[in-house]
């Protein structure tokens, strides 16, 4: 909830270009229920290639559910979701196709504790993409270097700190060479010192031009990196704007209240 962390990170926006024509994710009139509970109401969202979107909102507003719908960890009941040109339906083949191209980083890292860091990173490339072991390991090493922990490759997740584990989780997703990255509160389970190291990695990733959708409370990151901030409440998108306008000139009452409570 602090604006401190990301402000200390230098952001190079030169490569963060947003495509005018290529759509990464398109959501039209999407509704979702948990039983009788209407969690997501008439969601319409179009994400262009290269966009960095931060989704903010109070807890229970449906923001995690929304991004979990994008790789079908949650099923929607109405409307359409098109990811990378593929519409998500009950067709398992298409779901796997989408998941191959969409990376996801979780709040609790969800590394596989029985595998080493290297094995965590090579598992999906080898078994899903069929990449030979040596090549998968070379790619994994490349990404582990990018997240600055190549020396931990042979350790097990349980031996790493939370921040290191989250960086491994990011590297693991990147090893699949995804087109879109989803972040579900990636820093919420971390100590303040570790938040910074994870945000740095996310900023570096944004600088490569990756399409990113981040559910996060790091408003500093949102202001610096995002090109669009989406505010959700009660399962609906209430306001979206570019970060400067969003933070300095919020329109909706709920947004104003939210911002007044988290920004000091």
């Amino acid at each position: 909830m602090s604006e401190v962390s990301a402000d200390q990170i230098k952001v190079d926006r030169t490569k963060m270009t947003v495509s005018d024509t290529d759509v990464a994710v398109e959501i039209n009139g999407m509704n979702k229920w948990y039983g009788d509970f209407h969690v997501l109401k008439d969601i319409n969202l179009k994400v262009m290639k290269g966009e960095r979107i931060v989704i903010a909102g109070p807890s229970g507003s449906g923001k995690s559910t929304l991004i979990r719908c994008i790789n079908r960890l949650e099923e929607h009941q109405q409307g359409e979701i098109i990811v990378d040109g593929i519409e998500l339906t009950n067709d398992l083949k298409r779901i796997d196709e989408v998941r191959r191209e969409v990376g996801m980083v979780f709040q609790h890292f969800n590394l596989f504790p029985h595998l080493t860091i290297m094995e965590n990173c090579t598992l999906a490339p080898m078994w899903v993409r069929g990449i030979p072991k040596a090549e998968a390991e070379a790619t994994a090493m490349e990404y582990l270097e990018k997240v600055k922990i190549p020396e931990q490759a042979d350790k097990f997740p349980g031996q790493l700190s939370g921040g290191q584990q989250q960086r491994v989780a990011i590297a693991r997703s990147l090893c699949m060479n995804p087109n879109i990255m989803l972040f579900d509160e990636p820093t919420s389970a971390l100590d303040p010192e570790m938040i910074k190291e994870v945000l740095e990695v996310m900023v570096n990733l944004a600088e490569t031009g990756m399409t990113m959708l981040c559910v996060t409370h790091e408003m500093g990151f949102a202001r610096q990196v995002a090109n669009r901030v989406i505010f959700m409440d009660q399962g609906q998108i209430i306001e979206q704007n570019d970060p400067d306008n969003f933070f300095d000139n919020p329109q909706h009452e709920r947004t104003k209240l939210f911002l007044s409570q988290i920004l000091h």
């Binding site: 960890l73 191959r100 969800n110 596989f112 078994w127 899903v128 693991r172 699949m176």
Partner: peptide, 18 residues
Amino acid sequence: LPKGQYEAADALGLNYFK
């Protein structure tokens, strides 16, 4: 097993059997 393990495997594109 925590639900997160199933989700992480799904999110990486591993099918049910894998």
